[in-house]
Nucleic acid binder design. Structure first.
Lengths: 212, 212
DNA sequence: CAATCCAGCGTACAGCTGTACACTTAACCG
DNA sequence: CGGTTAAGTGTACAGCTGTACGCTGGATTG
């Protein structure tokens, strides 16, 4: 059941639309401020042809978020293999994530913006992607040490939040300032992991401690 | 030099515009998706009258961010006095911040969205507000313990990031899930502070440690 | 082959936008 | 008092938006 020329052409146009949308993302042009006509223009098709591929802009946006998710998963895999080589979990994770942000600023901006955007569908989609991050890291942590699942998740959530946020801040920074940011982030992750390790080292005794 | 009726009326209209804009903010209506005519309609004035008060929507937006900043400062002060009463820094901070988010979801949404938005002026304005947060907490930490200024800032940044982010997630959560989020956030802050304390307890020896 | 399908096009329209411009009218000030 | 200032109005217009509709021409299918 090889796809005929008709289906091939359709797929090609679909990709043109997706690429046009991604290409138009930038610091001062968000997906939500992007019009259907604009995307069509960039993709080289008539505005009404857009509907042959997506119901509306929201449908296109969800596709973009999904594709970004795939790109991020690839990144995760690369990071894991790097860890196996170098051994330094924290440093490697921060470096890899920052490298992604620097290389795909617009994809990262998309996730960043739609995470708090107007469309519930978008917010959910991005939240799901980040949830994957947290869960994968939770599994990793639970496997490497003897945290309960809950403890591991709490720690993973904190780590992901800090790294993701550092990525967001890196976007507006000069390269020199980025290094300082990376160093601070690395140190914060170390605080977190070290603190968690010590607090939970004597069994669950302190797990629900109420002291400040 | 008491303001005459003319100036009073002008100020009243100005406030009407500001309130109209704030009132229109919601989960599915952001400031950037808000039109000048919409605000004018809501404020009960002609579209062109808007210009008597603000150059454009961006100018209004910056005013909103500033006002939100003032509201947040008030909150900080309240939090500090609560700490003096109750003593538990982390628990009190989380509670106070979450209370703010629950009571002013739209103001918080404004900051959250414009932080990563299209307008550089907006991004800078919000970044400045958050920077204030970080700096005030840095001073507090440096004063209460013997961190270097750098260490205190790194820790403060981590704490602020985690709390701010928890607020963002709380927006879309049911009250029951919010409690769980609060608990996790509290625990994360504890990891951070505890980890920092221990890593820096033996002087600066580990300050630049590179181990993972 | 002929019949059907369907990606892409062009036209058209209503509805929205920001804002230029000329005006009224009440407060201000010498 | 009389002249000036300025907040607010209404009209107007060009430019953008999404999308309904009918068409064309090549690929697909029986």
């Amino acid at each position: 059941m090889m796809p005929g020329p008709r289906a091939q052409q359709k797929e090609k146009t679909r990709q043109a639309i997706i690429q046009a949308a991604l290409a138009h993302l930038s610091a001062d042009h968000s997906f939500s401020s992007m019009s259907l006509r604009e995307v069509a223009r960039e993709a080289g098709i008539a505005p009404t042809s857009f509907y042959r591929h997506f119901d509306d802009m929201e449908a296109l946006g969800l596709t973009l978020v999904d594709e970004s998710g795939i790109t991020l998963r690839k990144l995760m895999r690369k990071a894991r293999s790097r860890i196996e080589l170098k051994g330094s979990v924290i440093q490697t994770s921060v470096d890899t994530f920052m490298e992604f942000v620097e290389r795909n600023p617009n994809i990262f901006r998309l996730l960043l913006r739609e995470r708090t955007g107007i469309s519930p569908a978008f917010r959910d989609a991005v939240a799901r992607e980040i949830q994957h991050f947290k869960e994968e890291l939770t599994d990793y942590l639970a496997q490497e040490s003897n945290y309960t699942k809950e403890q591991a998740f709490t720690l993973a959530e904190g780590l992901v939040t800090l790294v993701f946020n550092a990525g967001a801040e890196a976007l507006d920074l000069a390269p020199s300032e980025r290094e300082a940011l990376k160093d601070r982030t690395t140190m914060q992750l170390r605080y977190l992991t070290f603190g968690a390790k010590l607090i939970h080292s004597d069994g669950q005794k302190n797990a629900n401690a109420k002291a400040s």
